[in-house]
């Protein structure tokens, strides 16, 4: 136990660097994932068969293959034609992955908004895009917040897979430190604490956002 605390405190500077990389990777990938998710959700509700198929195909491929395989294909596969930095291979891999799940969350919450909302907006002369942006999406977003928060947590933890293509993010740091010292366990406990704290902060943030959005209830 004493050893764990010594290692926890003694390794703060390297872990903070790993933390910074984890956060950058997570934020970048989740921001791209939201854009992908919104886009794919729009394809799915477009009522245009070919666009729905594209969206379905994308979701099928992403959900049907392990994330680590996707990251390896991006990193090693694309390296044949175009050398992609490992940060972006991991970031894009994570974004494509979360994007598929976010798309389903957004689609579900859009479709849960009562038909009358769309009709009311259209009856006021609002076109499709205004109706979507001003009336449907804000309400859908509110409903999606808990599920999105969940998906963000998964995304942050999944970013640990980036260590397999050499990124020294949190998990990569713990792995390296462990192997250098031939003493893995305290470093894995240490990294677990870092993840727990990130997830705790995010959870509190999501809860606060939910409360704030609930003012109109």
């Amino acid at each position: 136990m004493v050893e764990f605390f010594d290692i926890f405190i003694g390794s703060t500077d390297v872990f903070i660097e790993g933390l910074w990389l984890t956060l950058r990777l997570s934020v970048v990938s989740l921001l791209i994932a939201i854009v992908i998710g919104l886009f794919i959700a729009m394809l799915k509700i477009s009522n245009i068969k070919i666009l729905e198929w594209i969206a379905d195909g994308y979701i099928w491929i992403v959900r049907g293959t392990p994330l680590i395989v996707q990251i390896f294909i991006l990193y090693y596969g694309l390296a044949e034609v175009w050398l992609i930095p490992s940060f972006w291979a991991a970031g894009i891999g994570l974004a494509f992955h979360s994007g598929a799940y976010i798309a389903e969350i957004i689609r579900g919450s859009i479709q849960s908004i009562a038909k009358g909302q769309r009709e009311a907006a259209r009856s006021l002369g609002m076109n499709r895009s205004l109706t979507m942006r001003r009336i449907i999406l804000p309400q859908a977003f509110r409903r999606a917040v808990p599920a999105l928060g969940n998906q963000f947590i998964i995304g942050i933890k999944d970013s640990s897979l980036a260590s397999f293509i050499g990124l020294q993010e949190l998990f990569g740091v713990s792995n390296t430190m462990g192997s250098n010292s031939f003493n893995y366990l305290p470093y894995f406990f240490t990294v677990a604490v870092y993840y727990l704290v990130i997830v705790l902060i995010l959870t509190i943030g999501v809860n606060m956002l939910e409360k704030k959005l609930a003012v109109s209830d």
Binding site: A120, L124, Q139
Partner: peptide, 30 residues
């Protein structure tokens, strides 16, 4: 539709907007 207003059985107010927000939405946006 801008010239033909409609009132629905189930009101269909926009729940994420205030009363005034509901009323000014279309004049401003449309």
């Amino acid at each position: 539709r801008q010239n033909v207003g409609m009132v629905f059985q189930h009101f269909n107010l926009f729940p994420h907007k205030t009363v005034l927000g509901n009323v000014i939405e279309a004049p401003m946006q449309v």
